[in-house]
Design a protein around this nucleic acid. Structure first.
Length: 586
RNA sequence: CGGGGUGUGGCGCAGCCGGUUAGCGCGCACGCUUUGGGAGCGUGAGGUCGUCGAUUCGAAUUCGACCACCCCGACCA
């Protein structure tokens, strides 16, 4: 490609709104342009990189048996009503009416359509297992886009869907994706970590997220290098310090004026915080028979821990969770600051799983200025739900107790979900087994954000001069810089033709610009190999060759340019291949 | 949705205690000079100062409403 013809301009200065490096550089180097909040045009340079990423994805999906399809972007609302997500999902699902006033949605994901295809096309166990995928534009009206391409509202996503006879089949396809995703990221040159994650609105039983670790990430993770444990904060577990076994003692009311926090309570009574029970008041929105109802949730956790709201929401299967108002708290018979599960009514009591194993705790008395000593779950009150609702924090021990959790930030570049029968039962997608019995198809769904992957690569591969992309996803392999001089253009044209004819992908800077401009643009765009043709280089015996990542250059004779470039490209690809490794499943 | 910020040629910014014809750098076009790390000089094009309304003899400048974008939070399949 001749740069004089390229539809792209570099910018000396980045627009003021760009704050993160990848955003700034992708704008400055002329890869993308904004159209609105979280909406971008992808210019030729970005388009080429994304095509490379998509090619890698296709190869890896095909390798595990995927078949590429394309599903509609606009869906009839009826389908989403059948699975209930029409009601369960908020404004991030864009709804509209067609000319006949029929409700429609813009697709944010395709579980419904896949399950609909399955119920129409699949009849027999002989047709399974199956894996379909597409690479397509998704629209999600996120409340807040941010950080350039990291979080946008319109984006390209590879989504695949597995269909299986049973859980064992699902497990096979899930594990195949687990490794295929690592292959994809490794081939792009992006280091990632697979972490256990929440299944969220997708439903289902098991999920992993692929995280690129970076301080600008919006997810918080808890990881331990020693043990390999890694999980999203939303689901991270940890070994809770056990309470000393003790026979239950009689409950006893004590005066504790002015002690409305765990800190002041523990100090007043001179006991560790682990000997206290903390009350957290929330109101959950639950979905019952397609109706949303609010229920008061009384959460109880030991004083040395904090509640993780996502875990709590999952424990009661809440769609939403919000702090309760003081009036709501008093309405169930509790007193803020002195809350106790003893004697409250009209609420869902959820206790952390460390509570039943912790005897004789100090809890509130639901009376201003008083607490109870020796409160015991099961004896003094009956919890409706016992679950792990404690937040894992930096420094906590790993679940197996052998390591220490560290808190890091990451960007989610992909995820894999075991959906089970969440959608196939709702849509009655079944197959007949060997015995002629109708059984629900078992589903999994798997996603990769292509643009976000590019943004993470830009985030990972850059220096103060610009991008520095891996050969496997750079828009071009060789950046050919022509500097003016008698007959130079003819020489450079010949080199360009020869390389291109041999299949080398060349960005040829034939513009009438000064050397400094060309070198700076080359550094900005980040093509991995650079060739400079100039009178000086020619006098020294050929063209000047430099890798983008190296400081030094060397002269390559004109006749050696093609084999040298081919060898350099092969060497860079070999480096990439060496990084493609099997990752243990966990 | 809550909090904060910013809107002035393509980009970065100044002007804003009301007062000429709205300015600077970069970029863009043309000419001459220059030519290995974002050249110099000259000429020129390009702006209803986010929108609407109010105050005023007079508004980029003051006030109000709205809109857009960015950041933090909530949210996030």
């Amino acid at each position: 490609m001749r740069m004089s013809q390229l539809f792209s301009q570099t910018l000396r200065e980045a627009p003021a709104e760009a704050e993160v490096d990848s955003h700034r550089l992708l704008l400055r180097a002329g890869y993308v342009r904004p159209l609105g909040a979280g909406i971008f045009s992808y210019l030729p340079l970005a388009r080429r990189s994304m095509t490379r990423i998509e090619t890698i994805i296709r190869e890896e999906m095909d390798r595990i048996g995927g078949q590429e399809i394309t599903m509609p972007v606009v869906h009839p609302a009826a389908l989403w009503q059948e699975t209930g997500r029409w009601y369960a999902i908020g404004d991030e699902l864009t709804r509209f009416q067609d000319r006949a006033d029929r409700d429609m949605v813009l697709a944010m994901t395709h579980e419904e359509v896949v399950a609909d295809l399955a119920r129409k096309e699949i009849n027999s166990y002989r047709q399974l297992p199956l894996l379909v995928y597409q690479i397509q534009t998704k629209w999600r009206d996120e409340p807040r886009s941010r950080a350039g391409l990291i979080r946008v509202r319109e984006f390209t996503m590879k989504d695949s869907y597995s269909l299986d006879l049973d859980e064992a089949g699902l497990d096979v396809q899930y594990r195949a994706h687990y490794q295929a995703y690592f292959n994809i990221y490794h081939r792009c040159g992006l280091p990632v970590l697979a972490v256990a994650s929440d299944t969220g609105m997708m439903g289902g039983s098991l999920a992993h997220e692929y995280m690129y670790l970076t301080p600008i990430g919006e997810d918080t993770l808890l990881v331990c290098e020693a043990t390999g444990y890694a999980a999203n904060r939303e689901v991270a577990r940890f070994a809770k310090p056990a309470a000393a076994p003790e026979a239950p003692l009689p409950m006893e009311k004590i005066a504790t004026p002015g002690t409305t926090t765990i800190d002041t309570l523990a100090a007043l009574l001179n006991i560790p915080k682990a000997r206290t029970a903390k009350a957290v008041f929330m109101v959950a929105t639950l979905l019952e028979d397609q109706q949303t109802v609010e229920r008061f949730v009384f959460a109880v956790i030991r004083g040395d821990m904090e509640v993780n709201e996502r875990k709590l929401a999952n424990a009661v299967q809440a769609r939403e969770l919000r702090p309760a108002t003081e009036d709501e708290i008093r309405a169930i018979g509790a007193v803020p600051g002195y809350g106790s599960p003893v004697g409250v009514k009209n609420c869902l009591i959820v206790v952390d799983d460390a509570i039943p194993a912790s005897p004789n705790l100090v809890a509130g008395a639901n009376e201003d200025g008083y607490h109870y000593r020796n409160v015991n779950s099961g004896r003094d009150y009956t919890p409706h739900v016992v679950a792990d609702i404690a937040a894992a924090r930096d420094g906590d021990p790993t679940p197996d107790g052998r390591g220490t959790l560290r808190e890091v930030r990451g960007v989610e570049v992909g995820n894999i979900f075991k959906l089970g029968t969440r959608y196939t039962v709702a849509l009655n997608a079944t197959y007949l087994d060997k015995d002629g019995q109708a059984k629900p198809i078992i589903m999994g769904s798997y996603g990769i954000g292509v643009g976000r992957l590019l943004a993470c690569l830009a985030e990972h591969y850059h220096d103060d001069k610009g991008l520095l992309l891996p050969i496997s996803i750079a828009p071009y392999q060789v950046h050919l810089v022509l500097l003016p001089g008698e007959g130079m253009a003819e020489v450079a044209d010949r080199v360009y033709q020869a390389l291109t004819a041999a299949g080398v992908e060349v960005l040829y800077d034939d513009r009438d610009e000064r050397a400094g401009v060309k070198f700076n643009d080359a550094d900005l765009i980040g093509v991995p190999l650079r060739l400079t043709l100039s009178p000086r280089a020619l006098q020294n015996g050929g063209a000047e060759f430099k890798r983008r990542r190296d400081k030094d250059s060397r002269i390559v004779a004109l006749d050696d340019i093609l084999p040298t470039m081919q060898a350099e490209i092969a060497a860079l690809y070999a480096e990439i291949r060496a990084g493609v490794v099997a990752v243990p499943y966990r």
